[in-house]
Design a protein around this nucleic acid. Sequence first.
DNA 1: GTGTTGACTTAGACAGAGTCCAAGTTAGGA
DNA 2: TCCTAACTTGGACTCTGTCTAAGTCAACAC
Lengths: 137, 137
Amino acid sequence: MSDLLERLRGRGWRLTSQRRVVAEVLDGEHVHLTADEVHARAAGRLPEISRATVYNTLGELVALGEVLEVATDGRAKRYDPNAHRAHQHLVCSGCGAIRDVHPHGDPLAALPAAERFGFAVATAEVTYRGLCPDCRP
Amino acid sequence: MSDLLERLRGRGWRLTSQRRVVAEVLDGEHVHLTADEVHARAAGRLPEISRATVYNTLGELVALGEVLEVATDGRAKRYDPNAHRAHQHLVCSGCGAIRDVHPHGDPLAALPAAERFGFAVATAEVTYRGLCPDCRP
DNA sequence: GTGTTGACTTAGACAGAGTCCAAGTTAGGA
DNA sequence: TCCTAACTTGGACTCTGTCTAAGTCAACAC
Ligand SMILES: [Mn+2]
Ligand SMILES: [Mn+2]
Ligand SMILES: [Zn+2]
Ligand SMILES: [Zn+2]
């Protein structure tokens, strides 16, 4: 992620302080922040950064494949900087905590051709749900 | 689904015309309607049914396990009356069309204990994504 | 260094999905 | 038939995200 800014420059992007700060907020942390959380942390370093710019930058990073968008039911999307190693998510049904997990095998392999209905199936996302240690009875 | 109204009555629910119409709209169809689509179809039979009641009734049916909520990223949730046979979903990345699919094996089995981090993992939802025949280049 | 310019940022209006509330209505038991 | 708690209603409200017009500035040319 630290060379992300170089990669972006290589694509002809302007390196603005806003983009730099958003990249720094996502850098290194294996977290799954909402756009508003990214905005709050970015504003800690660059107080007047706008929500629109955070949304724009996140959208650009997603389009480049540098960040993944994780849709969690009903609530705000989460942005995942761990885009370079395929993984799935384990979500606590109690508190909403999210962890990266690495299941065995390729989930796509479980879908037989007869169940593909002519689709060109490209990806399989798996969401495991259950109660985390803190939320267990 | 046709005896759903009986099951609801058994739980002490009042059988109102609104609830009856929402149940009829979902009945039998293996579709994945949004709340607003359910409202539109229900209003065809009972013109003054309100959005709030449709949301309330759908939420109650979900809580009872009679209907599944399918979160599709960014868009409105879809309500799935096919709650009595486990299945997964295949979604077109182009037009958003949804189909029920039945992969081989239990997707939970692919997650080793060491990857469960103390969670009591209960379910695995799989979303397959790709282009449907109409959207393929 | 200075100037130029189109890419970028901003505030705020807007939109879609869903929730909440106070007031009115009604299903179903007494 | 009456009564009342449960249900429904319309509209206000919240949350998430998009859009736009006007202002700003990074990067390049000189
Ligand atoms: Mn992740
Ligand atoms: Mn389904
Ligand atoms: Zn938890
Ligand atoms: Zn399609």
